[in-house]
Simulated scan of single mutants.
Amino acid sequence: MRGVVLLFLLSLWSGGQVDAINQDVLANVVQEMRRFGLGGRQYAMAVLLTKQQCTQNRAIFDVGVQPQVVQNALNGNNVYTGNRLIAATPLRIVQAIDRTKTDHAEYRLLSRGNTNLSPMQTLINSAGRNDGQCIVFFSTYSPCLEKCNNPNGRNDIVPLMNVFQGFDKNRKAFVFSSVWDPSRNNPGVTNPSRQWMFDSFKRIDGYLPLYRCDRFKENNKWVNRCYRCVTANTNPETNDCLYGYS
């Protein structure tokens, strides 16, 4: 079966402090990962890469599944769990008449649910003892302050991020495309300040480097670009990862 080819141009690392993932190329990687997702819908996805795929320029690899297979699972509100890729959409659960709850996509990948291991832990376990492997965790939106990045929330994913501690900092990344806007579905809601949003970025970055990869306008042209959210610019008013947020 012909897999999807991702062009990973990852710089060689030696365990130093320099980011292992080339940010310009990471933008192209995210565009390729989107082929597995659903256009216009929120979803989260993670891909596990071999050492060879992580360190060789223009490395070609097969993730073992066609995009349509993953998309069919997501359209059915199922979590797709493969050997190299996992993916989920938010799941709306009706608990009673006029009462529902929603498990966000990131939470569905990180939580155990009714099983012994979470999909993310299962994916990581498949890496075995190969210390050279790396992982990219992608979400269409930054983890929201209402649930996924709310320290007091039932669906807070931050404690679940411990699952990534087995990976060297230079071999893991959390990537999102857009900053979650709480007023999007609730026009009367006042959005958290940019400082609060930046502080929420730092909570995630404490477990794995956080990037924003999206289309940005530069010199009157739209380009695919990735930005490191916490270490590059610590000013919430000018931070590139908060571009467009108000």
Rank of each mutant, 00 (worst) to 15 (best):
V18R: 13
A59F: 10
V179T: 09
P187A: 10
L74D: 03
P119K: 01
N116F: 13
N83P: 05
V189K: 15
Y243T: 14
L6Y: 12
A173P: 04
F216R: 08
K169D: 04
D199W: 05
G188S: 15
A127L: 10
E218Y: 10
C229Y: 01
N170D: 13
V69H: 11
I204L: 03
G128R: 07
V79Q: 04
L91V: 09
L210G: 00
G132P: 04
R215F: 10
R225C: 07
N83C: 08
E237G: 12
V94L: 15
L74C: 06
V189E: 15
N162G: 14
F61V: 09
S118N: 04
A88P: 01
V163Q: 01
L38T: 05
F201M: 01
Q31K: 14
C54L: 14
S126A: 11
T238Q: 08
L6W: 11
I135V: 09
P151K: 01
G37A: 08
Q56F: 08
H104Q: 09
R215E: 06
L210F: 02
L9T: 12
D199C: 04
R203C: 00
N191S: 10
V79C: 07
T102Y: 04
L210H: 01
N116H: 12
Y207C: 00
V94S: 12
S11L: 13
P187K: 09
M33D: 03
